[in-house]
Write a protein that binds this DNA or RNA. Structure first.
Lengths: 186, 186
DNA sequence: TTGCTTACTTACTTACTAGTAAGTATATTT
DNA sequence: AAATATACTTACTAGTAAGTAAGTAAGCAA
């Protein structure tokens, strides 16, 4: 594997386990047995590395939703939640949950990438919910946009709460999400 | 006002706007026109300050829920959500949303305080939902513990998402929460 | 009035941070 | 064979971090 990819993989792991402002180039250089300056060769400034990682995540997400396209809305949502379960097993939180709280400390280039990512994810969930309503697999009375945001926020924070509580909050949230898509008002 | 309280107030604001690892004693000392060492006089180590702030938040929460005690479950939940709305107006996220993502980087004393706080908040919401079910003001079919966790996670992350998206996600989440407490299964 | 406590300041240390300039070995191109 | 590009290392800088030791001014207590 090439050094640049190794740097990005490790940096992503560090960001999602410790946070952007809590890792240094030294953490990466000592783990990969390279020098500090080698990272600067590939990513001149730290924000170049940060930006590249968010951008790669956006591309991965685009690939994922493209692969899932033919599946049912329920199955697509399950696949999406499975990515959170995968993160959970590796004791990582999602990049939005890691970078979002320190949004104000991030350089502008990273803020822009992060905001763009948030709109991509939110619009995809809206599309899935709309499709589920259309084919009858989902049923709910809340506003579609609001419902979508309730789903991503609870998933995002479940990974954070897993850490703090030591319990599997994600499993609870998954259960509540699917129950909430099979309901009618009184 | 005394210096110690001023330090804590500013540190809390910094933690909830930038994060624990993204503020320094210098941020506080220059803002309050005191010296670096003056903060160390009141809080020998940074984690002493961090711990004190979480502990104060726990005490405040205990006071709040004690004051709300006589109100209806709906009103108590509204009061709770109003604290998030207050944070939102000050462009702050909640301390759990700020400290949770960097949980692994925190000293043990802060981790313990944070975990204790999470159990206090979660058990309170469970009590409110139980009371609402009992007096008929709430109606839902999900597991009570899971429903409680869905509520706090979505509130926590809504403040984070407000920042990233620039939209008022908290308002959406509030709407979805109350709709989700007035439903029956098909 | 002497001693002690409180609430600091002055002046410093050690460690780490991102970042850079200059040099080098290896491979690729012309 | 010579020139050039790639992927680094060596060796450094300037700035910032938390933390500390010693000193001080003001107030209170015996």
């Amino acid at each position: 594997m090439d050094t640049k990819t190794e740097i990005m993989d490790l940096a992503e792991q560090l960001i999602r386990s410790r946070g952007y402002n809590s890792f240094s180039y030294k953490d990466i250089s000592s783990a990969l047995n390279i020098k500090n300056a080698a990272i600067h060769y590939h990513f001149p400034a730290k924000h170049d590395l940060g930006k590249a990682i968010i951008n790669r995540t956006r591309l991965r997400f685009a690939q994922h939703i493209s692969e899932w396209k033919t599946a049912s809305p329920t199955r697509q949502l399950e696949q999406f939640i499975a990515t959170y379960e995968g993160a959970n097993e590796k004791e990582l939180i999602c990049f939005m949950g890691s970078l979002g709280p320190s949004y104000k400390t991030l350089p502008e280039s990273m803020q822009k990438e992060l905001t763009a990512a948030s709109f991509e994810i939110r619009s995809w969930i809206r599309i899935i919910l709309k499709a589920g309503l259309a084919d009858g697999s989902f049923s709910f009375n809340e506003n579609l946009e609001e419902k979508s945001d309730a789903i991503i926020t609870s998933l995002l924070a479940s990974l954070i709460m897993n850490r703090v509580t030591g319990e599997n909050i994600l499993a609870s949230i998954k259960s509540v999400i699917f129950t909430g898509l099979q309901r009618e008002a009184l």
